[in-house]
């Protein structure tokens, strides 16, 4: 049990380390570009004008990214407890994205214990993201976002209870119409791999969890959020998708002699 928790911490620690490394790599790339522009050639004097002119805001969308989440697909294929699917759509507005994620999650627990628990429902998350890579021409993004999440789900549990005083009896509890809402902060790295193909991951930290619709039995899983008992949740998504572009956001770079 503790080993499982430790494993989860190491796992998220590794993910976050990768995020920092990716960010450092992006900084390195930018630094190299600046160095190549500044060094020029043949001892020419350095250009005095700023490297990046003050950019005008461009609120007109230039692309729509549609992605599939491969984590729930992997869970469906290889895990016993969880199954589901998830998709995400994101549209750019200047350096911001409006992102919507939608998905389905089902879980079955307790097969190794003395109970059977089943949970199934749909969820969505919507909110803005800001791209920390402000001038990336390929559409790569390292984003920080704040989102609102909501899910609709149902669950049920059954087990046999042995009471010394009231005897032995079957316990069946159902919650047919549960709703949950929460807020989340997320960090996402999305990289252009080939033409319109993008892939990247999102780490979501969820908080302000509010679940309605239950009286006696508290749900265990909250689709899209995590565990009800935790009050906060962490979710990791790995998205692979395609960007449909209808215009170039940045003018072509001037030729450097």
């Amino acid at each position: 049990m503790i080993a499982k928790t430790t494993y989860r911490r190491y796992f998220f620690g590794a993910v976050l380390l990768l995020t920092v490394l990716a960010e450092a790599t992006a900084q390195g790339g930018l630094g190299q570009r600046m160095q190549s522009q500044m060094s020029g050639g043949g001892g020419k004097p350095l250009p005095r004008e700023p490297l990046f002119e003050k950019r005008e805001r461009d609120w007109k969308p230039s692309m729509l990214k549609l992605s599939a989440d491969f984590i729930p697909l992997g869970q469906t294929a290889f895990a016993d407890v969880m199954s589901g699917w998830g998709v995400q759509a994101a549209m750019d507005f200047d350096i911001y994205f409006l992102s919507v994620a939608y998905g389905h999650q089902a879980s079955t627990r307790g097969e190794d214990q003395n109970y059977t628990y089943q949970n199934s429902g749909n969820y969505f998350m919507i909110g803005p993201e800001t791209n920390l890579l402000k001038n990336d021409r390929n559409g790569n993004s390292l984003t920080f976002g704040l989102k609102y999440g909501r899910s609709w789900f149902s669950d049920e549990i059954s087990f046999r209870r042995d009471s010394t005083f009231f005897g032995s009896y079957e316990v069946n509890e159902t919650n047919p119409g549960l709703t949950a809402s929460w807020m989340e902060m997320n960090m996402a790295l999305n990289v252009n791999v080939w033409k319109g193909l993008y892939m990247g991951y999102t780490v979501r930290y969820k908080f302000f969890r509010n679940v309605k619709g239950w009286e006696t039995f508290a749900p265990y899983d909250v689709p899209g959020f995590g565990l009800y008992e935790d009050n906060t949740g962490v979710q990791f998504n790995y998205y692979i998708g395609w960007a449909f572009r209808w215009r170039e956001k940045f003018p072509p770079l001037p030729e450097v002699n």
Partner: peptide
Amino acid sequence: SGSFIVLGIWLLLACQEIK
């Protein structure tokens, strides 16, 4: 700023309850 955000999320994760 991005590194600070990542560090903040990591600290939040470290405070998760052991059951």
